[in-house]
Amino acid sequence: MEAPYLSTPRFVVRPSGTDDAGAAAAWLPLPFPIGRERGEATLREANAAPWGHQDPLDLLVCRRRDGVVLGAFRLTGVAGRTGTCRLTVGPAVAPDEGDAIRGDLIPVIIGWMRDELDLMTVGLWLPSDDDRSIAAAESAGMTSAVRLREHVARPGGRVDLLRYEILGRPWTVPAADDRPTGESRGEVRGDG
């Protein structure tokens, strides 16, 4: 069930299903152990609304070669047209592969949210020591907007939490003369 417009030669992006219940450590952005039963309940709750109305929306990241779930993007606020996303990479993913996910997919997801979903703003929260994600965000045209000091705990210390963002394209309102017949000010559209 790959979303081809979000996938790359190395990674598949797709919605989740009950078969993913046993891989919660990879897709859930929490450090707590989540068993299969709780994982399935979480997935059902996370997929409650069809037709693109789900908020937050979780999209899984899988290795194309063998289909293993490696992580997930969580998109929030899309309905309000100010979307934010976070990337979770599973704790068992090798560092090189995690960096590859960030480098390949962050520009794709950000570009899709801005240009196809046509959001006013797109934001991405990142720890300040995640150099690969920061580089990917900047390559997607994002700039640093917010720095929350010491908001991320690391072994032996703390680092800042950054919000990168990119603005949508400015909207334009067509002049009245350019509107299709029947939609100019003062006219009433009939129903038939």
Binding site: A145, V146, E165
Partner: peptide
């Protein structure tokens, strides 16, 4: 509290973001 930044265009109001 200390200023930490701003997120732009979060809401339209009175004809502007």
């Amino acid at each position: 509290y200390r200023p930490a930044g701003r997120t732009r265009w979060t809401d339209p109001r009175d004809g502007t973001y």
